[in-house]
Design a protein around this nucleic acid. Structure first.
Length: 297
DNA sequence: ACACAGGGTCAGC
DNA sequence: GCTGACCCTGTG
């Protein structure tokens, strides 16, 4: 991989396994905006960057080589061979063959654990545009300002203590509805170390899940999202409405809506890479409108 | 207009 | 285990 600094940008040459659209529009991340020029402006890790594709090159603007090495290399999971991963998954069956071909360039981000906890608590029984707005409002309310970019002030995702001490009144302004008390309670549980986000990384998958589910508003699906997108747990298999759709369509003998059984079946079929399989299939199902315009693929 | 669902979770049986 | 309610808001 050839990576060079060019002015205020870092350029990754020949990055055929890096497609900003597939990375950001697949539901793992909420703090991005698609610009008129097709690029993506992203706030993460107390920084703001702009990511775009130019031919086969990826251009990360507002980024130093030092930041790329220290932060974004890990964030974008650059150490993983996605070509090999897609090839491996495509051999499982025709659905994964289609999904991995469709979403070439998708990567699973390694994001901040606390940001994942709060973001996915907000995601419950919610819609992606509204989730994005709520996370933005929360960051503007009590996140650190990290400077202007493209004429707009940007705010980092707030710290644990900042979220834990939001007033009820301010929290209402974020418009997270019935999730407000969950956010407050969970932030306080993390602040008091009743649940230690940093130690979950050392726990076996099942234990890490149970630890996270002690938090308010965190059930099995949200716990899996936190572990998959925040802790790079490849076995984590979040079961949501879209997963229920494609599992019933392709992988279950008879219609089933029990999340526990669906999850068990997913791990049975996809093995220790279930999380990756889930992302490709979820994204493909959603983008192709499975269940709305008839069966996909 | 007004019902309906949206990357689920929780409380009550 | 299963069921219904849940704050909002864009959609048809």
């Amino acid at each position: 991989m050839d990576i060079i600094q060019q002015g205020n940008s870092v350029v990754i040459r020949n990055a055929v396994e890096f497609e900003p659209r597939h990375i950001f529009e697949n539901g793992q991340c909420f703090r991005w905006t698609r610009e008129d020029d097709g690029s993506y402006t992203v706030v993460a890790m107390k920084r703001v960057i702009n990511v775009r594709k130019d031919g086969d090159d990826v251009i990360i603007d507002n980024c130093s080589m030092a930041d790329f090495n220290d932060i974004w290399y890990s964030y974008f999971d650059m150490g993983r061979d996605y070509a090999a991963l897609r090839k491996e998954l495509s051999q499982i069956d025709s659905h994964l063959m289609a999904a991995t071909e469709f979403a070439q360039g998708l990567r699973i981000l390694r994001q901040d654990m606390f940001e994942m906890v709060i973001s996915f608590i907000i995601s419950a029984n919610n819609q992606i545009p509204r989730i994005k707005k709520s996370v933005d409002r929360l960051s503007e309310l009590c996140g650190e300002p990290i400077g202007e970019y493209r004429g707009q002030m940007r705010y980092a995702f707030p710290s644990v203590s900042a979220v834990a001490s939001i007033s009820e009144e301010n929290l209402a302004a974020i418009k997270v509805g019935f999730r407000a008390p969950y956010i407050l309670k969970s932030a306080n549980m993390i602040l008091s170390r009743e649940v230690d986000l940093e130690s979950t990384g050392n726990l076996p998958y099942e234990d890490a899940c149970n630890e996270l589910m002690k938090l308010a508003g965190v059930g099995p699906k949200v716990a899996d999202c936190i572990l998959l997108f925040g802790d790079a747990r490849e076995i984590a298999f979040p079961v949501d409405t879209w997963v229920i759709k494609f599992m019933n369509e392709y992988y279950l003998e008879q219609s089933d809506k029990n999340m526990k059984r669906i999850k068990k079946r997913g791990i049975e079929v996809f093995g220790d890479k279930a999380g990756f399989a889930q992302q490709y299939l979820f994204y493909h199902a959603r983008e192709s409108g499975l269940g709305k315009k008839g069966p996909a693929v």
